[in-house]
């Protein structure tokens, strides 16, 4: 153990530190460590047992199941990498799901980023009603996704829905069919996703804005910088860590988008909004192909893991 000196120095500041005489020091120290281990585990165990059984074990088992053929009945049967070979070479649905997920990410991420940053900058002024507005913006994020998805679906109704009536009022003669059109279903989902999440990211940006020194704005003003140039040359650079964090969070969140699609379109019409998570669900719980579904889950897992590691890596570089 190379960390021995540090560990013992820390130990002495910790529970039950006993003044150690020279001869008995070692034995006491090791019995103290044994005590601490027991005590520590007694605190952690109630949560850890549930956590290990219900989260850790399934995550480990996933990798095994992905290498098997496992139907609704019977036991898993080892087939090596066959599932992954099928996934990447012979399954048009996986391709569609991957592209749809990337499509969702490519629009939802920048839209939400711009909307939440814009709102945060507006709210950061000293204005009346800021608190009310913050509450309003955050509210969609904490309401039931089923309720809001159903309401939005009806708002998007092609013939008599309020949205298309408003569009017609403004002279759009042939408004889109939204959730019943394979071209417009994904944009409809993206609008709702952005509506729902922008308040959450706005809060993160507002927290970031608190750290921008007021003097910088004063200095820029003295130099004659207008509002727009103060935004680009003071706000944007100072917010870089927050912006980066939000970008990665949004990307990960978009790659694993599920319940919104599930409730609004169930992947349809056709496969036009089928995303990776929805495909996992369909394969497993509709078609009963658990092995193959797990292989898709491993791919999703890998994507999220890579993005998270990337986030940590860049964060560390920035902090240095």
């Amino acid at each position: 153990m190379t960390t021995q000196p540090i560990a013992s120095a820390q130990l002495s500041a910790q529970p039950g530190a006993v003044p150690t005489g020279r001869g008995q020091g070692r034995r006491r120290r090791s019995s103290l460590r044994w005590h601490n281990t027991l005590r520590g585990w007694s605190f952690i165990a109630p949560n850890f047992i549930g956590f290990a059984v219900l989260t850790l074990v399934p995550i480990v088992v996933l990798f095994y199941v992905a290498l098997t053929k496992w139907g609704a009945l019977g036991d898993p049967e080892w087939i090596g990498l066959d599932n992954f070979v099928k996934l990447f070479t012979r399954d048009p649905r996986f391709n569609t799901a991957l592209w749809n997920t990337l499509y969702y990410t490519a629009l939802h991420m920048p839209l939400t980023l711009a909307a939440s940053l814009g709102l945060a900058v507006l709210l950061n002024q000293r204005i009346r009603g800021a608190a009310f507005f913050r509450t309003t913006a955050f509210f969609p994020y904490i309401t039931s996704i089923v309720a809001i998805a159903m309401v939005w679906n009806l708002l998007f109704s092609p013939d008599y829905g309020p949205i298309n009536q408003i569009l017609r009022f403004f002279g759009v003669d042939n408004p889109p069919g939204w959730t019943v059109s394979s071209t417009w279903a994904m944009p409809a989902v993206i609008v709702v996703g952005t509506w729902r999440e922008m308040g959450y990211y706005m809060l993160l940006f507002l927290a970031g804005l608190q750290t921008v020194p007021r003097e910088l704005y004063e200095a820029a003003r003295v130099d004659g910088a207008g509002a727009w140039s103060r935004f680009w040359h003071v706000t944007v650079p100072c917010l870089r860590p927050t912006t980066f964090f939000v970008t990665v969070m949004l990307t990960i969140g978009s790659m694993k988008v599920f319940d919104l699609v599930f409730v609004m379109t169930e992947g349809g019409p056709g496969r036009s909004t089928l995303v990776i998570s929805q495909l996992i669900w369909q394969q497993a719980f509709v078609e009963g192909d658990f092995g193959y579904a797990s292989a898709i889950a491993v791919v999703l897992f890998a994507i999220c893991l890579i993005l998270t590691i990337f986030q940590f890596w860049v964060n560390r570089r920035v902090e240095r």
Partner: peptide, 29 residues
């Protein structure tokens, strides 16, 4: 409380926050 293996264990906790539920819902089910 300081004990051997604590920090590794905590890292394990944190790491799972990044794993989406739909990735391990099948074995769990």
């Amino acid at each position: 409380i300081r004990f051997p293996g604590r920090d590794v264990l905590f890292l394990g906790y944190i790491a799972t926050i990044a794993v989406p539920w739909q990735a391990y819902m099948i074995p769990q089910y």
